[in-house]
Nucleic acid binder design. Structure first.
Lengths: 377, 377
DNA sequence: GCCGGGACGTGTTACGTATAACTTACGGCG
DNA sequence: CGCCGTAAGTTATACGTAACACGTCCCGGC
């Protein structure tokens, strides 16, 4: 009846508020502990009378009972906890992946523990012992790997990892869902991918349609499938436009790195590229700065495109033409796949569509008649 | 001896790779299970001979033993897991807070579970039962609050919550560390704050020093201490400059909202403000867009300032003058405070310094002799 | 020569839950 | 009337760990 029952029984000031167990509830309701477990576990149809069931529920409510998760996990062998391994959480993209995954997890009464690699995208290489339990352990503190815990996880979702890092994550008996990883390289319980290749195709069609023929690709110099597929697809996508040339400029991640790479791309000897195809929005933002520092304009002199469609894409001016990756849906799909695996579903793979978002950072190249080609729509 | 012992004993293909327990290790090492627990728990000095201790460690390594976390938690009553409650993870700021907190947690062999409020900053109001166990539970799915779990958490860190949400988080027996919350309103186990007030003072000194007298404050319309203190301090900080006027324009969060609020601030009847003091960098980015859409320039016609110093601050042009909030250190300090509380330390409070970062988005106001006043440094 | 105490271990128990196995009552049916 | 199936419960057990309480031996001091 009282809204805050905890305060009513705050009579034990010594330690942690005298935990109330299922046995306490049983005593209060005049039944056995087993009956309490059955009722609260919703397995009582035909085992406990409706009247007693209601009494149990009332007693539990009254006492403020909450089941002890550790005991439950010990008994059932399930923890209702998933580990999400992401290269870096401070990247908006992965924060949104987490948000989507956490939403689905909540629907299934699952918790999500994060393992953000301290090294960032690419070199992430957690050892199995490290990831078990989701408790990253500093090497100096715990000399022996087995000192870290296990049996704390029901499954793992790994996003955008390098192939060898993925192999290290593989643990016998622990379902592994791979997000945005090479579909062919490892045996995962399930796979979810973004249709990056289609995004690249849409992007190149957009640029060549505007008339661009000299394109610099600011390629993230990171060992990750999601970036590898950009580079690979780009050459294929431009095969239909024989006079198009693409110049690959490797770059680190970040605004500054993008700025430097764009500077390189725009000042290299030979005819200047008219478009900078950047591997993500942040690199693209840096590229825009480089263009302006060289006294050029976006998009009149140089077109710039991004990838991801982060909040940043509409914060800069001009707003970035980019490929929208459905980050939340990505996380949702990953967690849904894990739930399916835990329910015994067979291994399967899904691919999520992406969409080109044309904005102000792309335009026909300079000194080109506007009717050379028709933009897509 | 083998690098990947799990693969060597993958002979049971049926279920989850036949867990190896401390009893298995004991059998292999020829000792009792108690001895294994003592050795691996590093409590064996004078209880187990060095030779047997080494044998136990070898056996554990050989078998790939990892302690069962659920059983350990059930026995010890500790879970080595902390809950971090943040308004929204997709905000870079809170992602960085998490990163800092997770780093310290790892040093103490703690895990971190997140509770991102689905509603975003402000209206976050998790009930105690919801937050217990870090498993957000949808109301429709689980009708009774006690169906969610407890005993899964050793402590809670709550960041930038509204006062009533904080009150709801308070749970007897569960340590609560408050981050960036009203220091006076609730009894927390510990408190860590950013010196937001000082940041506002530095910002206003910077602006008035440049000669600005008409300032619009784009104030986040969100019930959170960190924003409330900005508004409160601003009037105090301008008290020393009698001819300064500040016009408060409430705004939601986000680029678009900032754009609209800035438009309002700049087109309201009367003399136009020469500076827009924005409650965070994202609002400031929107404000810059509004300035340019009105045919004005940043910073020549209108100065714009942000708050937080996100990656976005240097991605836009001009780069934002802002107040750098040490997000990672903030999370670190919060987790350190929780660890101290768990070690029995008394309640205490800390305040982290912030720093003005002058960049290109501020300049003396137009039609003002540059020597009206001296900028700070 | 006896005794106290440290080194070295082991047996046992309890943590709180879920569930298999068992018991009893009772109504319907052959 | 005997039997069985189902409802309505209870009793008992095991999950894997940490740690308490209890032994035994040996050595050194008086």
């Amino acid at each position: 009846m009282p809204a805050v029952p905890e305060l009513a029984r705050a009579g034990t000031p010594d330690r942690a508020a005298a935990r109330v167990t299922s046995r306490d509830v049983a005593r209060a309701a005049g039944v056995s502990q087993a009956a309490v477990s059955l009722v609260l576990g919703d397995k009582w149809r035909g085992r406990v009378s409706p009247g007693k069931a209601e009494a149990v529920r009332a007693a539990a409510r009254e006492l403020g009972y909450r089941p002890n998760l550790a005991a439950r996990s010990l008994r059932t062998g399930r923890t209702r906890t998933a580990l999400l391994v992401v290269p870096a959480l401070t990247t908006e993209f992965f924060a949104r992946v987490y948000t989507g995954a956490a939403r689905i997890a909540a629907d299934h009464d699952f918790g999500v523990v994060l393992y953000p690699s301290p090294e960032g995208i690419g070199p992430a290489r957690p050892s199995p012992s490290t990831t078990h339990g989701g408790r990253p352990v500093r090497a100096p503190l715990v000399p022996d790997p087995f000192a870290s815990a296990s049996a704390a996880l029901d499954g793992v979702i790994a996003s955008s990892m390098a192939a060898d890092a993925l192999a290290a994550l593989r643990t016998p008996g622990l379902p592994l869902v791979m997000l945005d990883s090479d579909p062919g390289d490892a045996t995962a319980s399930a796979t979810v991918n973004l249709d990056i290749a289609d995004g690249v195709r849409q992007l190149t069609a957009h640029l060549t349609g505007l008339g661009h023929r000299r394109i610099a690709h600011l390629a993230a110099d990171v060992d990750s499938w999601t970036f590898a597929v950009r580079t690979r697809t780009l050459t294929d996508a431009l095969a239909g436009t024989p006079d198009a040339v693409v110049h690959r400029v490797p770059t680190a991640l970040g605004v500054d790195a993008g700025l430097r790479a764009a500077h390189t791309a725009l000042t290299v000897p030979g005819p200047r590229p008219t478009a900078l195809l950047c591997d993500d929005d942040i690199i693209a933002a840096g590229a825009c700065k480089a263009v302006r520092r060289l006294g050029l304009r976006v998009p009149e002199d140089v077109s710039v495109t991004g990838f991801d469609d982060l909040a940043l894409a509409v914060a800069v001016e001009p707003e970035l033409t980019t490929v929208r990756l459905p980050a939340e849906e990505f996380g949702e799909a990953g967690m849904r796949a894990l739930m399916a695996v835990l329910d015994g579903a067979p291994t399967d793979a899904a691919t999520l569509p992406v969409a080109l978002v044309p904005r102000g950072s792309t335009a026909p190249p300079p000194d080109t008649p506007h009717n050379t080609a028709r933009p897509g729509g």
